[in-house]
Simulated assay, not measured.
Amino acid sequence: MTSTLFLAGYAALVGVFAPRVLARARWTHRAPRLAVLAWYALMATFLVTVTLAAYHLVLREQHVHDGLVGLLSACGLFPVGSASHAAADPATLLPPALVVLLPAGWFLDRVWRTRRAQRRHVALLAVVGNPSADHDAVIVDHDTPAVYCLPGRYRQVVVTRAAIKVLSQEQLGAVLAHERAHIAGRHHLCHAMVDAFGRSFPGLPLARQAKGQVALLLEMAADDRALRLHSRENLAAAMCEVAAGRAPRAAFGAGGSSAAVRLHRLLVPAATPGRAARLGVVGGSLAALLVPLLIACGPFFG
């Protein structure tokens, strides 16, 4: 039971304490894409740890260590000796398989629901919207300035006429670049993965923190991509104008509740982390993922 206890403790560390530290880190807003990677590394680490803990608990630590084959056997990747009978029993693999299949099922459910909602909205836009070749977007008559996009298969950028009236050409170009960054980055899939993890582990601090943090970081990442071609002033001014606009379900909007935080980030820019810091975050994320494998497969925890 030694490995199972160590894995359970590590899962608690990753699922409860690590997200608090990452959420308070100051560098995340300066490197949003790197921070998203760190959040996904924590979620992947938690999944791997819980899966291995469930596998060890079912097998009651009946492992065979014999070189590389023994290592694979200890990890449940190769049936050898006494472990072969356990691996051959489907009931043995059911608990760890459920840990993996549950978030996978929720992910597919979220993608399907999002696609269905987008399909309905696209049908509505075909009636009330007017495609504009100049803006490469669909224009909708509405009194509220708003800009949003539908990612995925039905990718479209939507702009209200009120937004076109209040935004200059430079400001409109900046906010349109922000929305196209969501589409190019497939951010809807990123949201679907976080949502699936949260539904699989409701109440887990990691799931709660990741949902809000990743949503904000993806908006910042889209801002950064828009800044490659547009100025901070134009993007910030456009955000102020469309902040009150609400995006429909299954869409990304340029405004929203995170606009104030993003606006401050645009107007008070900070230096991005250096190469050493970035390599440290990537290395730490990989190391965190390797720890449960070392616990499960290492001879010191047998």
Rank of each mutant, 00 (worst) to 15 (best):
R60L: 05
Q156K: 07
W39N: 00
D141R: 12
R199V: 03
L57C: 06
V242D: 07
R119H: 15
F301M: 00
F301Q: 00
N234D: 12
W106H: 14
R113K: 11
V281L: 14
A237G: 07
G198N: 12
V99W: 13
A87D: 15
L218P: 02
A11P: 01
V21D: 03
S3A: 12
P19H: 08
G81H: 03
A210L: 01
L22S: 08
P205Q: 00
G152S: 02
P292R: 14
T92L: 04
T2Y: 12
H178E: 06
G129R: 13
R153C: 08
I164P: 00
G129C: 13
A251D: 11
L98S: 05
A18L: 12
R20S: 14
P79A: 08
V14K: 09
V21K: 07
T92R: 02
A174R: 03
A53R: 03
L294V: 15
C149T: 13
P273H: 14
A38K: 14
L125I: 02
R113V: 11
L52P: 09
L279T: 04
A215F: 10
R20Y: 14
V166Y: 07
M239P: 01
R24M: 11
V282F: 11
R116N: 01
V64N: 06
R30K: 11
S132D: 07
V16P: 03
G76I: 06
G245E: 11
N234E: 07
L102H: 08
V111Y: 08
A18C: 07
N234T: 13
G256M: 04
H65F: 13
V194H: 11
V122H: 08
E179R: 05
E241K: 12
C190M: 08
Q171D: 07
A163Y: 09
P95W: 10
A53D: 07
A146I: 05
